[in-house]
Amino acid sequence: METADVKTNAAKDLSFFAGTKEGIPIALGYIPIAIAFGLLAKSVGLPNRISIIMSLLVFAGASQFVAVNLLALSSSSWEIILTTFIVNLRHLLMSASISQRIENRVTKGWRFLLSFGITDETFSIASLRPEEKLSPNFILGLNLISYSAWVGGTAIGVFLGAGLPKVVQNSMGIALYAMFIGLLIPNTRDSRQVFILVVLAMMINSLLNWVSLFNFLSAGWNIIITTIVAAMLGAIFFPEDGEE
């Protein structure tokens, strides 16, 4: 009873502003990556306008890097679009998961809008909130600061045409991983089930990445397969929430 009260009291603020605040670590991680993207796009001869529009319309980091690399290799349009699809398919799982966490009264229109902003990072922050249901304003704030950082960073990259010093770039590379760790670790402390699931998922993903038998799978497929297998095993062996 008491812990339930603490939980609801500790996490009540689901306003738009709270969403933007929670998104600050994402923005911090996105800006250097987006700058790097802008620079890469410029270096392969993509017009500035096109690079920014890609960030505005696609808003998916890894796939944009891949697309620009493929463009530089003069790959076919279909190959680029198909690769983008595969790289971003994991959002299907994230969208399914977060769909259950949005307040029931939220309209379809809101859902069309909010789903555009689902990335690995916004999903992580939103889905690991303690509240059972999330307000659309909170998610909008979270998505909007992340989106602004991504598009803004791209613009900085293409217009300034100069990157951060190599050592700064290298160190910033860890930012989003550190954020994922920061979100995940407290949950592994609270729940043995989550701890086991995390170890299992990392083992599965390592196998898929390092065992040559699975070399034919891309990193995108590895993440999709790992997520499905680990979450399914978790659902079978831990059907109940085991929080003490």
């Binding site: 994991r90 799982l93 994230m94 399914a96 998961s97 769909s99 259950q100 690995d120 999903f123 992580s124 889905s127 690991l128 190599k166 050592v167 290298n170 160190s171 590379g173 860890i174 991983y177 994922f180 760790i181 979100l183 995940l184 949950n187 989550v194 699931l197 995390v198 998922a201 990392m202 599965i204 993903n205 390592s206 990445n209 390092w210 990193a219 590895n222 993440i223 790992t226 997520t227 499905i228 680990a230 979450a231 399914m232 978790g234 659902a235 079978i236 831990f238 059907p239 929430d241």
Partner: peptide, 27 residues
């Protein structure tokens, strides 16, 4: 079963995103 599967996706996906990708994230 599906509800629980969806609940556990954040932990599974985050783990897969972190490791081993983190190893090549810096210099």
């Amino acid at each position: 079963l599906i509800k629980r599967f969806l609940e556990l996706i954040p932990f599974a996906a985050l783990s897969a995103l972190i490791f081993p990708g983190i190893l090549s994230s810096t210099g």
